[in-house]
Write a protein that binds this DNA or RNA. Structure first.
Lengths: 336, 336
DNA sequence: TTGTAGGCGTTATCAA
DNA sequence: TTGATAACGCCTACAA
């Protein structure tokens, strides 16, 4: 049995109110009684019960994290960023894996709400209306990290995905390529699918290169599908490829080699995310860096402001991305 | 303001006790009153307050996770395993990153204890005495995942690290190698450093190959140091290398290539962990698979048993590891 | 079958 | 400056 505030009070021969006061070193307590209480605390080995405290003050100093899959790339870094800042502000983190499944998401949000979290940070490619509604209903601060909702109703932190893929494709064009293929994310993914494909189209159109649907193959962010997608693109004689993820880029490069061509000599490839695969793989992969850690850190910082009801200058933070040029576009050494 | 049990009681014209009963569908409640209560719950939008409940029943259905760094390889998978099983048993997870720093670890354990977690799963290469003592003091179930304490006082789930590296080195010997180098983990790491090095020594000794200290270079699990370590080993003309992690193995291969040699033609390399780097990297890397997901899942399962005070057949679970043969030892195709 | 009331461990108001 | 005491929202004997 853990000691409670009562035990301390008895030990120090004061009331529990006084103990509570020195605990929160709030009101004015005589140095003498304060010392008595401190001694009693040490003697009893008293540890405050955060549950009781939270129940009373209606705050748990805990926030929930909804994440598709902590074991897939990108998210661990984001979560690390979140946790670092949370720790800095004395918040704890509930981690919830949902595999982006509606049922799991809703179930977790429900539980988080029952556990009285002070806020929720949501991650995931797609945010369904049902989930969105539920998040609004529970009435606590929500921040979207590395994603956004269609109507921008929630505060969020992200990069400009369209601009990022525009930059990638524009770079390929600047290298003299005309037949540029793309391995995109799923079409129903508004970001990895739609936005990145739009950036690709815009770069082409700006360069007055006609868009050919046959040069865009839908992937699933998985290596295997991307490998097959690349084989299709090879049939169309592309001379450069932009893949919506590093893993897909790596798979594409493998497909290119296995087909008897080589990178960067015959075909140039650009990936997305700057995961460590992109610089450990040989050839190293030119890619777009998405600042995962920062997305997490800034999201959590935004959350702390929301929770403290501080004034917020910008509810929608756009973090800078960066094109990192490596061997797969025939330029430069690995810089890491 | 959220509705409470009182609101529901008033709405349904029953006492709060009755509401509580249907909530925990415990005692015998008339179907009719039950229905009235259910309606009232729906009407008021009542959500139970887990804090109040936990305070009363002295259980939070929450467990704490102490992890060095969720953004480094291996741990995300372990955590995924933990979370999957936790979710299955309706437990929530507090994620705590410590960078293996004593101060952070102790601080988090303190907080977890105050937040009344039902148990703690600890991960990390080294477990300090101070931390160990603290874990024992808080008096809740502890499980070590992917690690172990010197005296085996805590229940744990892990692989046999010595045997694993023994297997790796024995395989190299079976391929005819005599000058086998090793890039180990830090010497003060009882597992990645000591145990794996011991396995290396044992395999050599069994094959009557004399152990040469110059063939073991201490690494830090980081790519850069491993690269340099490999350069040293090359000066000693090794014909095979066992690295205590995939990342170090990959860095070693890069060093070998950059020195004008090739893998597997000139030198064979084996890594450790079967991270996805090991099969995406070219040449694909022969490695020891540590079942990260299973370590997590089994740890959490063990925790649920501890919490339910179920009888436990084995407090120390040793999960099987596996040698996965790939190109870096000149054998077979990537099987993934 | 249902209701009353005490208590889980705090905080905070109001007196003293 | 300190002490009673009423919440916070829930569970659970014990009565009715």
């Amino acid at each position: 049995m853990n000691a409670t505030i009562k035990d301390v009070a008895r030990e120090a021969k004061v009331s529990i109110a006084t103990v509570s006061r020195v605990l929160n070193n709030s009101a004015v307590v005589t140095d003498e009684t304060k010392q008595r209480v401190l001694d009693a605390i040490k003697k009893t080995g008293y540890k405050p019960n955060a549950l009781a405290r939270s129940l009373k003050i209606q705050k748990t100093h805990t926030i929930g994290l909804i994440v598709p899959d902590i074991s897939s790339p990108f998210y661990p870094e984001v979560v690390r960023g979140i946790e670092d800042i949370a720790s800095m502000y004395s918040y704890n983190i509930f981690l919830c894996n949902t595999d982006q499944k509606e049922e799991k998401e809703m179930n977790y949000i429900e539980i988080l709400s029952e556990k009285q979290v002070d806020g929720i940070i949501y991650m995931g490619d797609i945010i369904r209306d049902s989930v969105k509604q539920q998040l609004k209903d529970i009435g606590i601060p929500i921040v979207l990290a590395g994603t956004e909702d269609a109507e921008s109703e929630f505060p969020n932190v992200n990069i400009d995905n369209k601009k990022a893929s525009y930059d990638a494709v524009k770079y390929l064009i600047s290298l003299g390529h005309k037949k540029i293929g793309m391995i995109s994310g799923p079409a129903d993914d508004p970001i990895g699918g739609v936005q990145r494909t739009n950036g690709y189209k815009e770069a082409l159109s700006e360069a007055k290169i006609r868009f050919k649907p046959s040069l865009v193959v839908e992937g699933s962010f998985k290596a295997r599908q991307a490998y097959l997608a690349m084989l299709k693109l090879l049939e169309n004689n592309v001379d450069a490829v932009f893949a919506a993820s590093d893993e897909m880029a790596a798979a594409a490069i493998n497909a290119i080699f296995d087909s008897g061509f080589s990178v960067p000599e015959d075909i140039h490839v650009i990936g997305f995310d700057n995961t460590y695969l992109s610089y450990m793989f040989r050839p190293t992969i030119t890619t777009i860096q998405r600042p995962a850690y920062d997305i997490g850190a800034v999201s959590m910082r935004l959350m702390t402001k929301l929770l403290a009801k501080e004034p917020i200058d910008d509810m929608h933070v756009v973090l800078p991305h960066q094109l990192i040029v490596r061997e797969s576009t025939g330029y430069g050494e690995e810089k890491k």
